[in-house]
Amino acid sequence: MTVTLEKPTSAWLANELDGNHRPSRENVVVAASQTLVDGSVISLNSNGQAQIYGGAENEVAAGIFVGDAVTTGAGETGAGVYVARNAKVVSENLTFKSGLASAKKTAALADLAKLHITTVRSA
């Protein structure tokens, strides 16, 4: 599965690793029962599928979903792309799971920093 994005860079993405075929990005299967929008902070489930980061015990933020929104129903998967490494993002423009506590958001940003996805201040 390969997903190609033709749309311009999003407001949350300040800079990413440039080069052949956007080396900071990965294609991903979107897990069942998910709605991921451009800028959603994601984690990967035990099957390696993207899901909205929820801050569960031992859950690790894996990147940021990029592109058109993908909604999957129960038992169905979708296709998407996420920024997996080497990027600078505007944290105020990221999308987190509704109701996620500030401490969990901070933990997610720390996880992303380990992937060299760091934050910058908005202009």
Rank of each mutant, 00 (worst) to 15 (best):
residue 104 K to Y: 03
residue 45 N to A: 01
residue 87 A to E: 12
residue 97 K to D: 07
residue 116 H to L: 07
residue 94 L to N: 10
residue 101 A to D: 10
residue 50 A to I: 06
residue 108 A to D: 07
residue 37 V to I: 15
residue 19 G to T: 08
residue 22 R to Q: 06
residue 110 A to S: 12
residue 7 K to L: 14
residue 115 L to E: 01
residue 72 T to W: 11
residue 19 G to D: 03
residue 28 V to K: 03
residue 83 V to C: 04
residue 47 N to P: 02
residue 13 L to F: 09
residue 16 E to D: 12
residue 14 A to E: 13
residue 28 V to D: 01
residue 123 A to R: 07
residue 50 A to D: 00
residue 48 G to N: 11
residue 24 S to M: 00
residue 21 H to K: 09
residue 85 R to N: 01
residue 115 L to W: 00
residue 28 V to G: 05
residue 34 Q to S: 04
residue 95 T to R: 15
residue 78 G to C: 01
residue 37 V to H: 15
residue 98 S to L: 10
residue 95 T to Q: 14
residue 118 T to F: 00
residue 101 A to R: 10
residue 74 A to M: 11
residue 74 A to Q: 10
residue 66 V to I: 14
residue 10 S to T: 02
residue 49 Q to P: 06
residue 122 S to W: 10
residue 47 N to C: 08
residue 73 G to I: 00
residue 80 G to R: 12
residue 2 T to D: 14
residue 101 A to E: 11
residue 37 V to Q: 15
residue 50 A to L: 03
residue 90 V to D: 13
residue 79 A to C: 06
residue 110 A to L: 04
residue 39 G to A: 11
residue 21 H to V: 08
residue 62 A to W: 04
residue 74 A to G: 09
residue 72 T to R: 02
residue 70 V to P: 04
residue 63 G to D: 10
residue 17 L to A: 13
residue 18 D to H: 12
residue 79 A to M: 06
residue 107 A to P: 09
residue 94 L to F: 03
residue 39 G to Q: 04
residue 11 A to M: 12
residue 6 E to D: 11
residue 102 S to Q: 08
residue 81 V to C: 09
residue 7 K to Q: 13
residue 107 A to Q: 15
residue 106 T to A: 15
residue 38 D to R: 08
residue 122 S to G: 12
residue 77 T to Q: 11
residue 79 A to T: 06
residue 1 M to G: 14
residue 70 V to Y: 08
residue 83 V to S: 08
residue 2 T to W: 12
residue 116 H to Q: 04
residue 60 V to M: 06
residue 2 T to K: 15
residue 51 Q to Y: 10
residue 78 G to W: 09
residue 60 V to S: 00
residue 71 T to A: 06
residue 60 V to I: 02
residue 85 R to K: 13
residue 25 R to L: 07
residue 53 Y to R: 01
residue 36 L to Q: 07
residue 101 A to L: 09
residue 22 R to F: 11
residue 32 A to P: 12
residue 22 R to D: 07
residue 61 A to G: 04
residue 101 A to M: 07
residue 82 Y to T: 09
residue 104 K to P: 02
residue 107 A to C: 11
residue 28 V to R: 00
residue 114 K to R: 01
residue 43 S to A: 08
residue 118 T to S: 00
residue 55 G to L: 01
residue 16 E to L: 07
residue 121 R to E: 10
residue 97 K to Y: 06
residue 108 A to E: 01
residue 69 A to I: 04
residue 42 I to L: 08
residue 112 L to S: 01
residue 106 T to Y: 13
residue 103 A to W: 13
residue 4 T to M: 13
residue 85 R to E: 02
residue 71 T to G: 05
residue 91 S to D: 09
residue 42 I to C: 07
residue 117 I to M: 00
residue 92 E to T: 15
residue 109 L to E: 15
residue 47 N to G: 05
residue 73 G to S: 12
residue 90 V to Q: 11
residue 58 N to T: 02
residue 108 A to H: 00
residue 86 N to E: 02
residue 42 I to Q: 06
residue 6 E to P: 04
residue 91 S to K: 11
residue 76 E to H: 14
residue 77 T to S: 06
residue 6 E to A: 14
residue 77 T to D: 10
residue 85 R to G: 05
residue 46 S to D: 12
residue 29 V to E: 02
residue 9 T to W: 15
residue 115 L to M: 00
residue 52 I to C: 09
residue 27 N to A: 11
residue 17 L to G: 09
residue 21 H to Y: 05
residue 7 K to M: 13
residue 38 D to W: 01
